[in-house]
Computed example of a mutant assay.
Amino acid sequence: MEKASVSLTIKFLLLQCLFALSIAQDFDFFYFVQQWPGSYCDTKKSCCYPTTGKPAADFGIHGLWPNYKDGSYPSNCDPSNAYDESKIPDLISLMQQDWATLACPSNSGSAFWSHEWNKHGTCSESNLDQHGYFKAALNLKSKVDLLQILQSGGINPDGGSYSLSNIKSTISNAIGYDPWIECNSDADGNRQLYQIYLCVDTSGSDLIACPSFPRGKCAPNIQFPSF
């Protein structure tokens, strides 16, 4: 009985240590994902402008997503800490501008932000509370002007076809780190620039080299549609 008791105590202590480690470091980095609205809207599914009106022709935030180095990610980490718009009143107008929803039916954006916080933001609570999470994403958006970077390299949202390698190198040369490009298809099946992933440290403030990239690939040449 004594050996069994010691064994159970050791197992309990090990579980406590593992739990403490998981709390201390519950993810390795963030993906900061920006989306081109023209590529969202020209698909067969189409889009709806938010109730605040058509967003600007600029990349918009999709999300700030905690990830592990092995490519997996945590999600829905704390159901008890649901999205609460009363915690971010000073950010709403900027979120409407830089984090606009294009989902149908037309809405204010609250459902989109709620989804992002509940699924992804709650997994960053060890470093960022709700206000800090949304503020971090907005700060990153202001720090990295993807449209300006691309246009400075002669890559414009004019419906033209551009080299995927040139898009990547243009961004990499500007920010010092390689991005990951996600493509989708327009209503005619043409492959196009859809989302750009950058990697950020666990504080949500500084760009880093990506420890891993998502799966999937684009064509060697892709379109950059207008919006």
Score class of each variant (00 low, 15 high):
5 S>K: 11
14 L>T: 05
18 L>W: 00
21 L>Q: 02
21 L>R: 04
22 S>G: 08
23 I>A: 14
28 D>L: 13
28 D>P: 12
28 D>F: 09
29 F>Q: 12
31 Y>G: 10
32 F>D: 07
34 Q>H: 05
36 W>Q: 08
38 G>R: 00
41 C>A: 02
42 D>S: 15
42 D>V: 13
42 D>H: 11
48 C>G: 12
54 K>L: 00
55 P>M: 15
55 P>S: 14
59 F>V: 05
61 I>N: 11
64 L>W: 00
66 P>F: 00
67 N>A: 09
68 Y>L: 13
68 Y>N: 15
78 D>E: 14
84 D>M: 08
89 P>N: 11
91 L>C: 06
95 M>C: 10
96 Q>E: 14
98 D>W: 02
100 A>M: 10
100 A>S: 14
105 P>S: 04
106 S>M: 09
109 G>I: 15
111 A>S: 15
111 A>M: 14
119 K>L: 03
120 H>M: 06
121 G>I: 14
122 T>L: 04
123 C>S: 07
129 D>H: 01
129 D>E: 02
132 G>T: 01
134 F>P: 02
136 A>R: 03
137 A>N: 06
138 L>V: 11
160 G>A: 12
168 K>S: 13
169 S>Q: 11
172 S>C: 05
175 I>R: 09
178 D>W: 01
180 W>S: 10
189 G>R: 11
193 L>M: 03
194 Y>H: 15
195 Q>F: 07
196 I>D: 11
196 I>G: 06
197 Y>S: 12
199 C>Q: 09
200 V>T: 11
201 D>Y: 13
202 T>F: 05
202 T>N: 12
204 G>H: 01
205 S>M: 06
207 L>D: 11
207 L>K: 13
208 I>D: 06
209 A>W: 02
209 A>S: 14
211 P>Q: 10
212 S>Y: 07
214 P>I: 10
215 R>T: 11
216 G>F: 01
218 C>I: 06
221 N>W: 01
223 Q>F: 08
224 F>T: 14
226 S>M: 06
226 S>G: 08
